[in-house]
């Protein structure tokens, strides 16, 4: 019974709790709400911008990655192609060198041996044959006992190669005439050959 009475008493006490009133005016409250509302909206718009920034950044980074990968692929391909072409060119140059060497060695042999010579071939024929069959080795038996021979050499445009030339049975007595004779047969300038100025050089042949 007392429990029930206590309960009733409690309910009555709760109902008689003091009324709480807000002291601020309606206008004041409305202004505060308005300010908060505007602030919330600006925060929201900032949040929206803040959401866009990482999205844009990630898109940009993806594009950048794509570009980097593309350029790497391209450079790899070009490297491969250039290495292939380099290999090709090295092969070619090796061939050329080989042919040059063969040519040189053949002519060197000419110079070294310089004992017998094939009368039927002139220098022009030697030049043409050597250019046509670069990979072949030629041996020239040069016999200069009864023949007259004039030695000279030309250089290529960038002085990479020296092309020695021997003219057999040359009737020309002077060097300039000799050059003219060669020039008549081969257009030196067109073939990228230049006079080395061998006329000013002195050669001595040491016979063993």
């Amino acid at each position: 019974m007392t429990n029930h009475n206590d309960k009733e008493y409690l309910i009555n006490q709760l109902k008689n709790m003091p009324k709480i009133e807000d002291q601020q005016s309606k206008e004041q409250l409305y202004q505060k709400i308005q300010r908060k509302l505007n602030h919330n909206q600006s925060v929201l718009s900032k949040k929206r911008v803040a959401v866009w920034i990482p999205t844009l950044a990630s898109i940009c980074s993806i594009i950048l990655l794509f570009i980097i990968i593309q350029t790497q692929n391209f450079s790899n391909q070009s490297d491969q192609s250039s290495s292939n072409s380099a290999e090709d060119s090295s092969m070619e140059s090796a061939k050329l060198e080989n042919s040059d060497q063969t040519g040189e060695s053949s002519i060197a042999e000419d110079q070294d041996e310089s004992k017998s010579i094939n009368n039927s071939q002139d220098t022009e024929a030697v030049e043409e044959e050597s250019s046509q069959k670069l990979d072949q080795m030629y041996n020239y038996m040069i016999n200069i006992k009864n023949e007259s021979a004039v030695y000279t050499a030309f250089i290529t445009e960038q002085a990479q190669h020296i092309v020695p030339v021997t003219l057999l049975n040359s009737k020309e007595e002077t060097y300039s005439n000799y050059i003219e004779q060669i020039d008549g047969q081969i257009n030196l300038d067109q073939n990228g050959l230049y006079d080395i100025g061998i006329k000013d050089m002195e050669f001595t042949i040491e016979e063993a």
């Binding site: 009324k19 709480i20 009133e21 807000d22 309606k26 409250l29 409305y30």
Partner: peptide, 11 residues
Amino acid sequence: FYDKYHQDLFQ
């Protein structure tokens, strides 16, 4: 809303 319920809401 203010006129009708504000003091109750505040309490």
